[in-house]
Amino acid sequence: MNEAKPIKAESTRSIVPRLTWLDGLFWVTAIAIFVDLYLIFLWVPKEAIQGNVQRIFYFHLPAAWIAYLAFFLVFLFGIFHLKTRNPKWDHYAYSAAELGVVFTSVTIVTGIIWAKPIFGVWWVWDARLTTTALLWLVYVGYLMVGAYAVSGDKASRLRSAVGILGFAVVPINYLSVSLWDTVHIEPIVIGGDDTFLSADMRLTLYFSLATFTALFVFLLVVRIMLRESEAAVEELDQERETALS
C-alpha cells in the first residue's frame, strides 16, 4: 500500500482554465479598473445635489449587485452539490460565498460613508440596511458551519443547505425598499424611463458594473483554484497518514 499516487486527484479536475486564459482576464480586469476609476473620479460630472460624495454610488451599487450574484451562485452550486454530491460544486459555492461576504461588506461600508453626509448619520435601522446586515450574517454563518462541522464530508452538505436557505433573504433585501418605507432610494430600473441618471452617469454606472463583474469572475476563478489545491493537499495529507499507520 506504499506506492505513491499521482498528485492530481480525479475529483479536483475542474473548469480551472489554463493560465493564458486567466492572464487575459487579469489584464482586462486591471485595465478596466483604471478606466473605471478615471470615469468615476474625473470624467463623470459632479452630481447637482449631493456633490462629489455621490461618486461613491458607482462603487456601492456594483458591489451590491456582485453580492447578489455571488449568493445566487452559492444557492445554485449548493443545489448541484446536494444533487450530485460532487465536491467540485461545494468548492465553487464556498468560493462564491466568501466573495459574496466581501462584496456585501464593501456595500455596507460604502453605504455608511455615503450615508453620513447625506442622512447625517452613519447607520439607520432601516429595512434595506437591516436586511443587508442580515444577509451578511447569514453568509458568515454559512462560512462558520463548515469550520465547525464534525466531518469534512458533512460540512459540504450542511453549508449547501444553509446556502440554499439563506438565499431566501436575498429577495427580501432587494424588495425591502418597495415593501417598507425606507430612507434608501428605490432600486434603479436600468434603462427605464424614470431613471434619474443622466446619460454619462449611466454610462459610468454600466462600465463600473462590468468592471466589478470582471473582477468578481477573476477572483472567483482564482479562489476556486486555491480551494481545489487546498483539497488536493488535504487528500495527500490523508494518504500520507494512512500510509504511515
Binding site: 442580515l134 450574517l137 447569514v138 454563518g141 462558520m144 458551519v145 465547525y148 444553509v162 436557505l165 439563506g166 431566501a168 433573504v169
Partner: peptide, 10 residues
C-alpha cells in the same frame, strides 16, 4: 452556539 447564529438572521 451554531443554532442561534444560523437561526436568528433567517
Amino acid at each position: 452556539v451554531m443554532l442561534p447564529i444560523l437561526l436568528i438572521p433567517l
